[in-house]
Nucleic acid binder design. Structure first.
Lengths: 235, 235
DNA sequence: CGCGACATTGAGTTTATTCAAATACGGTGG
DNA sequence: CCACCGTATTTGAATAAACTCAATGTCGCG
């Protein structure tokens, strides 16, 4: 069990959106330079260590977050206390969208790999989207993206045998990148993503290693045998 | 396997939104009467029989649908052809939201109980939402609602033992209604909702019946023993 | 070096799946 | 109205998969 670290003191400073290296792929991609200069509400940047919590279920955040780098898990809990990871948030993703509706956060957002985020006050996003149809449309896109992701987790990661699920998770982790290289999560987290136990996750990964479907190049960096993993994922 | 029935000939006519009995709870709830009178694009109404398909994955629909009555399943398919039901759509729900982004539909939408829908052309919704912040906000709400639902299916309906999942599904089916009464789906569909086999779904339901957790009052109408189902769902 | 956290492995048990058979059910046509 | 057909449900038995609980290994860090 990972201890809860707050991120109060992780503030790096005010982001310079104009010079943002992710400007192309971020929520604000379509905005003109002039618009940024109207921003009097500053956009804060944070760096969050592994195990820290960006926000918690039920918090009244009032902020959405753009992830610049790193990985977060969105976690929900069952009445019996067991956890289920419902989504991963990665570079260029946005999380906490629900706060724009005035809702409290629906998940715990916990850092799996050191993460840099920009905090966007809801007020700012609302104002901007009011007279920026492009931004507004981008918001809808993000919502739909989250929904597609949620559906994919159901269909791909919560259906079929443990071997299939693990294979599909691995393929998902490298899909975007050209590389067939990726790093893995703690077995407990993999279990919580796939709806299987920690032990089953571990056994499956261990077996994949023995079959050279996974080869560890450097610590926690794995090369995947994509064709054979695909065969497992599909049949 | 249910045969595919198109709904081409199911058109009932043009809806009279002003007199809509669901006006309060529908996407257009907050619109003023005058606005409806500006609608030159008519809103068609359809009645769909069980087993028919409202839209298919990949269709370029250009329409969203408000469900007036009945139940639809949203289905996705795995490469091996097996199906997974990712959500149910019921009275006052909207489906096909993705079409407002110009995307094709992400699911097959298949009728489980005779369903009445109103078809909203994307063009109409876009125009209305342009100068109706309330409608616009309602759209966002619907998106978030779908997302919450997707997450809940993952957490509640795809986690834990078959007994727990079935119990949670049953509780979900009566949650909105005051009654502890509900009708059940085909076992094959229940399996596809819960990520279990048809046989396991059947065995579990049969066992619940023997334990009087479910009592059939009239054909396919069941009274639920909610407290005991809750016990099963949670432990 | 040794501690603590995590990963792996083992053995036994439970649960779910598979494949097959039997039963119930709804609707149709005689 | 009843017999019959096709479909869905239920049940059975054997098998396979995943889970539980416990022990052992491994790795990084103080």
């Amino acid at each position: 069990m990972v201890k809860n670290v707050s991120f109060n003191d992780a503030r790096d400073g005010v982001a310079d959106c104009l010079k943002c290296s992710l400007r192309e792929s971020v929520l604000f991609a379509k905005l003109k330079d002039e618009v940024f200069e109207q921003l009097h509400d500053p956009i804060d940047q944070y760096t969050l260590p592994v195990g820290s919590t960006l926000y918690r279920t039920g918090d009244e955040g009032g902020r959405m977050y753009t992830v610049r780098s790193g990985i977060l898990k969105l976690v929900q809990y069952l009445p019996d206390g067991s956890q289920r990871i419902v989504r991963l948030i990665r570079s260029t993703d946005i999380t906490g969208l629900e706060s724009i509706l005035g809702e409290t956060y629906q998940h715990d957002a916990v850092v799996l790999q050191e993460t840099e985020v920009c905090a966007l006050p809801v007020r700012v996003v609302e104002n901007l989207s009011k007279d920026n149809p492009a931004l507004h449309r981008e918001l809808l896109n993000r919502w739909q993206r989250a929904l597609n992701e949620a559906d994919a987790w159901l269909t791909e990661l919560s259906t079929g045998s443990a071997k299939q699920r693990v294979a599909r998770l691995l393929l998902r982790l490298v899909k975007d990148t050209q590389e067939s290289q990726c790093s893995l999560f703690a077995r407990e987290d993999m279990g919580a993503m796939l709806g299987i136990t920690t032990e089953t996750a571990s056994r499956t990964i261990a077996e994949f290693k023995r079959q050279s479907l996974l080869v560890e190049t450097t610590p926690n960096q794995f090369l995947l045998d994509i064709p054979n993993l695909q065969r497992i994922a599909e049949d």
